[in-house]
Design a binder for these strands. Structure first.
Lengths: 347, 347
DNA sequence: ATGAAAGCGCTAACAC
DNA sequence: GTGTTAGCGCTTTCAT
């Protein structure tokens, strides 16, 4: 039988309440007593039963995810994944809400947090001063904060939940270089905005690999598609008009449809190597048809669950398992597409 | 506040004990009462608090992992991952043991299970009749069974925890084809044994892609390295002597060291495209030095945690989240190697 | 066939 | 500072 608080109490010659105070680092216990209790704990090899503690605490964890209100397929999938993960957490007394804010106007985001009392927040937002302040104020109120998908390294967040975008960009770079097999040429790079942190990182990684290993490829200046297919198509057309033919296109942003449509219209489909991000219904189809050569993906389910685990751990003052929270950079090719996710319960 | 058993009792006009009997499908309750309770449950939207139930039950889950006693780096890493995952489960009242058995002699495995009373088993073993019988007998005793790494589709296992090896082989095939960039040639394929299920699947997937998309490549007959570097080196040398130069080597098995050493010795290092499996200290180094071009990896931590989650869910009669349990096929290139895992607690 | 009451391991008032 | 005691939501004797 595993030792319990009662065993500690007996072993240390104190009462249950005192043991509890020591266990939870609550004030009002003499140094000497604390030591006695800790000794007892070590001696009998006590391990806390978290489930029982939470039961007694009647603790309810309140978490919120803040996401842009854009309608990209990636965000839709992410929202669905968060809902699913939240469902699985109700048995662990956590309630999860999603708030959305207009991307152009992050101060709405700030308002959304006003006056709520919550335990943790996962925030996907641009790296603006308002957002940084918001995170700081949340932390001051004792709220656990994780940044999601796009990091804010200069903000006071506890943790970043997302892929290493520098490594993702590097990966895109190798695939581009190797798939082109030594053929020289220019490569267009589409980002959502040159101000977005994740885009900057991807671009940096991409360029670094091209410079190191594929000097025959010349990356062009970033073009901004603002995660929108129309916009992306427009800037890509302009880019091609200005620079002439390209050997490849690296779509670091959403709005990949704008790229495939443009290439198709210009009769270049299948003749230009395209590397895109995130597995969505569209990129999956494009991969299957050969319009895209590779997709760098991050698992939205993993993002959602990892964010919740990390916030929970932070609130409980527990350590996380770093390996479990490392969001993997997945490389999807036509040949290793996973079967379409079925959203129903397992049979 | 979430409704509790007390609410059900009040709502249905019965006692706690009766509610419990209905909830756990225990005998000794009239049809009519059962219906009344179930109605109440539906009406107030009751969701069982599993943690509280387990606390009251004083339930302890006993799980065992059965692994071959071979000393491959992959198995070492897997064992370490299981230990780590087990550590995280002790607070959830699960105890985990690892038993090893000599690969040549699986009946030792069968003996290892005799007389133990346990709740779940994760088994990594060859697809032999003894093992199939073992799984059947375990199931008959009410033990949850998952196959690990290599499936046993014809056995009575509840679940397979591992990558889709057919898809992994396909992935290896595309990488080989694309990395060779249209250059024609022969490709050697190393398996551990032509009888191992995972090897058969990888080989099938690999060949399928080569036939479909890279007809310029000619896969040679499988050579058996028995997951051993020496053995692998020997058979590879024989294969090269017989077939002449190859453009690539697909190492579907462990023992990759035998391949890199052989190529090195023959002055072919870097001139032959090598695709291997599993990220180990050796494959990592080989990737960094360029001796290997790509590694198809499966996350051992994910394998361990997934196996435990799946077995737990099965024992509790809960559904799993299929997306969470899908073990990803990771493609590791020199450029996207994750930082070396540090095994200490997070800072 | 049903109910009352005593725990499971831990926390939190409230005493002393 | 420390101890007593009454729960948290659920299960489990033991009565009835």
């Amino acid at each position: 039988m595993r030792p319990t608080v009662n065993d500690i109490a007996r072993e240390a010659g104190v009462s249950l309440a005192t043991v509890d105070r020591v266990l939870n680092a609550r004030p009002g216990v003499r140094e000497k007593t604390i030591r006695a209790v800790n000794d007892a704990i070590a001696r009998i090899g006590y391990v806390r039963d978290v489930a029982a503690a939470n039961l007694a605490r009647q603790r309810v964890y309140r978490f919120v995810f803040a996401l842009p209100d854009a309608g990209s397929q990636f965000l839709l999938a992410l929202r669905a994944a968060i809902d699913e993960a939240a469902q699985g957490m109700i048995s662990e007394r956590s309630e999860v809400r999603i708030v959305t804010y207009p991307l152009r106007d992050p101060h709405v985001l700030v308002e959304a947090f006003a006056g709520r009392n919550l335990d943790g927040a996962a925030i996907m937002a641009p790296e603006t001063p308002e957002v940084r302040d918001l995170i700081l104020r949340l932390k001051e109120k004792g709220v656990a904060v994780a940044t999601l998908v796009s990091d804010q390294p200069h903000a006071a967040r506890d943790h970043f939940v997302g892929i290493d975008n520098l490594a993702a960009g590097r990966t895109a770079g190798v695939l581009m270089g190797r798939f082109l097999g030594g053929r020289p040429g220019k490569v267009a790079v589409v980002v959502s905005s040159i101000l977005a942190r994740d885009m900057v990182d991807r671009r940096l990684g991409f360029d670094a690999v091209l410079a190191e290993r594929f000097p025959e490829l010349e990356p062009l200046a970033s073009i901004e598609g603002h995660d929108d297919a129309e916009q992306t198509a427009r800037v890509l057309r302009a880019c091609l008009a200005e620079n002439g033919p390209v050997a490849g296109v690296y779509v670091a942003a959403a709005g990949t449809r704008g790229v495939t449509a443009t290439l198709e219209a210009m009769g270049l489909a299948g003749r230009v190597t395209v590397i895109a991000h995130d597995l969505t219904p569209h990129t999956r189809l494009a991969l299957e048809s050969g319009a895209i050569d590779a997709v760098i993906a991050q698992d939205v389910g993993h993002l959602a669950r990892s964010a919740l685990r990390v916030l929970r751990a932070r609130v409980d003052g527990r350590d996380i398992l770093p390996a479990q929270e490392r969001i993997r950079i997945e490389i999807m090719l036509r040949e290793n597409l996973p079967p379409v996710a079925d959203s129903g319960p397992s049979p």
